[in-house]
């Protein structure tokens, strides 16, 4: 069940936005019996840098997760699903990572998002790390897939903050396209 972020306490550093972390894990065999939303487990919301670390420090790192697991870190009030009003017209940058890189890259991505390093107004919705059997996948969701200046700016910031290997492929996909080819979830 969802709990809103507590107000930052004295001495804490407030974030520009409150965020929520969700976790999902797909167990083999139940793909069709339940919908994505039912797999989604709320972890915590936070409003300050210190609250973030208190939550993050207690979570398993992506490299420690097994099977088909995802962390979803979204602005509070945005559900990590395409149906949410904030995501309907949006899209995401997708970055495939060789095994062994996900934990470090995820942390860099999260810190850049919380620290407002993307400088694209209200465009960022959230980020996902998807642990899979082969490669791991990072994605960064934004509101307006048709806003090319914004998506390019997000890509350039991603390159700067993630320190990716030079051969890393980055792909932008609208949520509408992900739905059409059933590649989203």
């Amino acid at each position: 069940t969802f709990r809103p972020a507590p107000k930052p306490g004295p001495g804490e550093h407030p974030l520009q936005f409150n965020y929520s972390i969700w976790f999902s894990k797909r167990t083999p065999g139940n793909k069709t019996s339940t919908t994505f939303g039912q797999h989604l487990k709320f972890v915590a919301s936070f409003a300050s840098v210190e609250q973030f670390w208190a939550v993050y420090s207690h979570l398993a790192r992506p490299s420690e997760l097994t099977g088909h697991s995802d962390y979803h870190l979204f602005k509070e009030g945005i559900r990590p699903m395409w149906e949410d009003d904030a995501n309907k017209l949006g899209g995401k940058w997708i970055i495939r990572l060789k095994k062994g890189l996900a934990s470090r890259c995820w942390e860099n991505l999260v810190l850049a998002m919380l620290g407002e390093q993307f400088v694209v107004g209200e465009e960022i919705c959230g980020a996902v790390v998807s642990v899979r059997f082969q490669d791991d996948i990072l994605s960064l969701w934004n509101r307006t897939a048709s806003d090319q200046a914004t998506t390019i700016r997000i890509r350039d910031t991603l390159k700067r903050v993630l320190h990716l290997p030079s051969n890393t492929v980055m792909e932008y996909k609208t949520h509408t396209d992900s739905l059409k080819d059933h590649s989203s979830f």
Binding site: V49, A54, S57, N108, L111, L114, E116
Partner: peptide, 21 residues
């Protein structure tokens, strides 16, 4: 209005704060 911007190094520093436990 003003945006609250934090560099990575600062965020990492806050990790060690007793408030972050």
């Amino acid at each position: 209005g003003t945006r609250i911007v934090y560099e990575r190094a600062f965020l990492m520093q806050c990790r060690n704060s007793p408030l972050a436990k």
